[in-house]
Simulated assay, not measured.
Amino acid sequence: MIPFVDLKSQYLSIKDEIDTAILKVLESTQFVLGKEVAAFEEEFAAYCDTDSGIAVNTGTSALHLALLAAGIGPGDEVITVSFTFVATAAAICYTGATPVFVDIDPVSYTIDVTQIEKAITERTKAILPVHLYGQPADMEPIMEIAQRYGLVVIEDAAQAHGAEYKGRRIGSIGDIGCFSFYPGKNLGAYGEGGIVVTNNPEYARTIRMLRDWGQERKYHHVLKGYNYRMDGIQGAILRVKLRYLDQWTEARRSHAARYDELLAESGVKTPVVMPYSHHVYHVYAVRNSQRDVLQQKLNEQGVQTGIHYPIPVHLQQAYADLGYKPGDFPYSELAANEVLSLPMYAELSPEQLKIVSAAVVRASDV
């Protein structure tokens, strides 16, 4: 079986460095925040070309605190997409605000920028584009609209570590950028983790307090905050892995190019890289109108796959109260019915790429 993700292979390739980093934290006993987390914050912010990084316990927490720092609260609206992981909408709801969905561009799968302006109301306070699968949203028109209407832009970059838009690092373009370090991400922790990056010192100060019970210093609670702190061990692990991120990204991009070649004559539609995009392929998602049959046939041939995502948020039972119905966002719904993610990680071998692709060619004739 060729696994969809192979975290063990990655760990074994850097085992000595990881084990040493973990032992260092154990010996220091700085298990929550601490020097390793602080160092990682600086290094990741520099990687993103931003002034500040504030490490938290999950990518969802990063989104939640970014929204709060931007002043989003009850009665406000935030424009985003439905074709995303549910955390995007959940974080908006945590603040008491309402997610307002628009459809995706059918080629890039990111927010259709031509739909944003018509969704703006007097209650709109922010735009939250999602850089899906490692491909950036079209940020230039988003920033132009935000500037015209006085809106905050918060980038959901949970799947886009190292991605670039017209030469600029994702996370540095909007007012705030939010990343996840869930284990399967391009830069993954060995547990949960997230970070907020920003060039706005006031946002950084607020988020830093909010993640640690609203404290400006110990026992001096300026805000009603949360326990969203990153563990010291995760900070140490991420410092090691950050040094390999560009190398792993280039491997992913190389694998994607090979998939493109091998699947050119298959019955699936391969990803399209937008002209403004440096795609980092968190996911290599193909499309087929008989996706479920294709997935079953691949599984029978020993190829694991994933679906990102089978039900758009606006059709999820938990979000029925938002009042959306089938047909409201046709491109999101069609993508949800057709996308299938193939194995994608730096450690894939040339032979595995051939095996997966051959299986897809056989199985896609459905």
Results as ranks from 00 to 15, higher is better:
49 D>T: 15
259 Y>W: 10
187 L>Q: 02
72 I>G: 04
141 P>L: 08
95 T>V: 10
258 R>N: 05
67 L>A: 12
280 V>M: 02
356 V>Q: 05
91 A>I: 09
123 R>G: 04
148 R>P: 00
350 P>W: 07
93 C>Q: 12
321 D>A: 11
180 S>Y: 05
63 L>N: 12
194 G>W: 05
278 H>M: 06
129 P>D: 03
256 A>D: 05
282 H>Q: 13
339 V>R: 15
39 A>D: 14
282 H>F: 10
252 R>F: 08
65 L>C: 15
145 I>C: 04
325 K>D: 08
292 D>I: 00
202 E>Y: 13
51 D>Q: 14
264 A>M: 08
96 G>H: 10
280 V>W: 01
340 L>V: 09
343 P>R: 05
246 D>H: 07
317 Q>I: 04
334 L>W: 10
338 E>N: 12
185 K>E: 12
20 T>V: 07
107 V>P: 00
269 K>M: 13
315 L>T: 11
21 A>N: 03
172 S>A: 15
17 E>Y: 04
65 L>I: 14
315 L>Q: 14
68 L>G: 03
236 A>G: 04
299 N>C: 06
261 E>F: 06
18 I>P: 00
128 L>H: 03
122 E>W: 05
328 D>A: 12
156 D>P: 05
27 E>Q: 13
156 D>R: 03
107 V>D: 11
262 L>C: 04
336 A>D: 11
165 Y>Q: 03
154 I>F: 01
23 L>M: 14
119 A>S: 13
58 T>R: 12
246 D>S: 11
147 Q>S: 14
180 S>V: 10
283 V>K: 08
258 R>W: 00
249 T>M: 08
6 D>L: 09
165 Y>K: 02
65 L>T: 12
241 K>A: 01
154 I>T: 01
339 V>H: 09
324 Y>I: 11
251 A>L: 12
39 A>F: 06
156 D>M: 06
166 K>I: 03
317 Q>H: 08
227 N>V: 03
168 R>E: 14
139 M>H: 09
187 L>S: 04
57 N>M: 07
268 V>S: 02
106 P>W: 06
71 G>C: 03
254 S>I: 00
86 V>E: 13
310 P>D: 14
210 L>V: 03
344 M>V: 06
44 F>Y: 15
358 A>D: 15
115 Q>E: 13
193 G>S: 07
179 F>S: 07
313 V>L: 09
235 G>K: 01
12 L>M: 14
244 Y>P: 00
117 E>Y: 05
277 S>G: 07
141 P>V: 08
201 P>N: 09
318 A>M: 11
178 C>R: 02
188 G>W: 07
161 H>A: 14
320 A>V: 03
46 A>N: 13
295 Q>K: 11
325 K>R: 15
163 A>H: 02
20 T>C: 05
171 G>H: 09
172 S>V: 07
262 L>V: 04
222 V>E: 13
282 H>D: 10
277 S>A: 15
13 S>P: 02
60 T>P: 00
7 L>M: 12
154 I>P: 01
114 T>H: 14
42 E>G: 11
125 K>D: 02
65 L>G: 05
324 Y>F: 12
169 R>P: 00
50 T>C: 15
43 E>H: 09
98 T>H: 11
34 G>I: 03
260 D>E: 10
241 K>T: 00
318 A>E: 15
179 F>W: 07
47 Y>I: 03
53 G>I: 08
285 A>V: 01
80 T>H: 01
87 A>Q: 10
222 V>L: 12
160 A>W: 02
337 N>G: 13
174 G>D: 03
150 G>N: 01
